[in-house]
Design a protein around this nucleic acid. Structure first.
Lengths: 141, 141
DNA sequence: GCTTGACCCTGTAGTTGCTACAGGGTCTAT
DNA sequence: ATAGACCCTGTAGCAACTACAGGGTCAAGC
């Protein structure tokens, strides 16, 4: 096996649909690979790493714009660190906020699932937990 | 104040944009309310409860399809609640996976910020941290 | 050397879950 | 009667894909 990959191989290696790979290229997130004589895209290991990074970041809830910023950050290894440090700190704060949000969500879901008595929907605590509280459910007066 | 609400009131009560309320109606998630003589939507407390349920579920990260399923289940009071439990469990598993991934990223960013106080970012490992394991990152042979 | 089938190409339109107009109608108050 | 806040329908836009349609390429097998 050579050092280049067709788009399908790249897709399988990164769990990305072929159309999505082309989409990333179209919006400039993934650089244009060289083409074979038959006009097929020929990717190298750099593309593979970059795409892996993109996919994982997306999975973690970063927007494409944020992924772009992260990639720039990773690319500017020669630059003095200060400008980059700020971006990194910003991302760190955001990641920490995201973790906190998800943990709160997880706790709620855990509470729901734990309380589920496996009875009928009538007694289902999950549904109950999702239903509005007193302030909205009951009319005053 | 009467027992019915205009769309704007409903929106304010549930922190939902008016356009979003109409959107939920259009896709059949919220039933059509009766109309006033002037063709204004007139919602009742049932709509308010249902919309609250939808918004809360959305807030907890359930997709509209999942919300639809939950609503259907909530309506079938005699059915066993296993299906509800399954939706919640599936969602919980997803949330837990995301937290674990974000924690890995957080640790990387923390290390980076700590390391990166002065000098260059040469040792930045964020790409590596988010890149796939050996199977993909290193070519065999 | 010709076909079959897996793969690739471009381009465009659809999806989800909203959100934002445009171009109007209604209602309440002054 | 006129201003302003609200409502109506309809359509188009957004992010981030995803799914075609209508073709071209290429290795394998007969």
């Amino acid at each position: 096996m050579s050092d280049t990959f067709a788009i399908g191989e790249l897709g399988r290696a990164t769990d990305t649909k072929v159309e999505t790979v082309r989409y990333y290229e179209r919006i400039g997130l993934l650089s244009q690979p060289r083409r074979t004589s038959g006009n097929y895209r020929a990717y190298d290991r750099g593309h593979l790493n970059r795409l892996s990074f993109i996919r994982r970041s997306r999975d973690l809830g970063f927007s494409l714009d944020q992924v772009r910023a992260l990639l720039d950050l990773a690319d500017q290894r020669d630059r003095p660190c200060e400008a980059v440090d700020e971006i990194a700190r910003g991302h760190l704060a955001e990641v920490e906020r995201k973790i906190a949000d998800l943990e709160a969500l997880r706790d709620e879901l855990r509470g729901m699932v734990r309380q589920c008595g496996h009875g009928s929907v009538r007694d289902c605590r999950i549904i109950e937990a999702l239903s509005p509280g007193d302030a909205l459910a009951a009319a005053p007066g």
